[in-house]
Amino acid sequence: MLELRGVRHRYGKRVVLDLEQFTVPRGAVVAVVGHNGAGKSTLLRLLALLETPTEGQILLNGVAVPRRASAALRRRVTLVEQRPMLFRGTVRENLEYGLRLRGIGRTAVTGIIGHMVEQLGLLPLLDRRRAELSDGEVQRVAVARALALRTDVLLLDEPASSADSAAAGALYRALAAERAARPVTVCVASHQLEDAYRWADDIRALADGRLSPVTPENLFRVDLPPGEGVKNVRVGGIEIAVMTERTGAAVLAVPPTDIFVSREPLASSARNVFKGRVTGMAIGRHGAGVHVRADMGADGGVELVASVTAEAARDLALAPGVSVVFSFKATAVQVF
């Protein structure tokens, strides 16, 4: 289990991460979603023991990690960065790098590499150098290089961002096979919510370096007018009613579980009611993430993610393009 406790991390004077507690349970797949600059990559670098938090502690299996983690400790965790780096040399040499550091014999190294190459379809690339690879191929090699090490914890920063759908499928299948073989703990940073819903046991959202109650699709930066009670705030062509006493710059968060999706308008107390259509769906083990977009002309509107059960999605015959009405209460909108 990997845990951050009371972590506040700064670059210069800027606080880039502020987490009271962040836990990745043993054997679980946790997805971290958030916009660019939300702090996902910094979080993964801290979890990978590559950076020391300015304040707070990192715990690995309940034991506090010292400020300068030893190589032996770092060998239990490995990170694949969003834009991975391959060393000078061939793909084969890159795959061998971490295995040789661990003192694994030549025969065993050849066997492990053969297995990874087969799983991720890297055979034609083995003798190529990094300059001869596409971004997607570099990403696949980097994931294979990390998987080959069989570390307790695997951290993946946007692992499929440069991969086509077939390569992404191969990558996630390799990950699933690894999980089936042993209790590997995985933390994946992604801005693709569909991936998160499909593969993760738990989804955490980051916004401005803090854990957010909702996924990034439902976060809006706004300027709140003065006054009390219900305020109408314009967001991308629609007006959202929010109950708050705050004024000035703020972030509005609409929890996906507080959004009602229906085929017809409902008589209810909800102050926010929008007609729209389904723009995408991701059905996972915890229900369905339904992307709905308020219709405000050709380029207007706002996209939100609503969380519904798989049964509700089936009963309402929700599918991309279907017209829906979605609503949420002014008091459901969180302000922070």
């Binding site: 670098r45 590559l50 834009r83 991975p84 780096m85 060393f87 790098y97 090490l149």
Partner: peptide, 10 residues
Amino acid sequence: RVRRTAETLG
């Protein structure tokens, strides 16, 4: 990233 990659690979 070269340094980070070397470190994260052990």
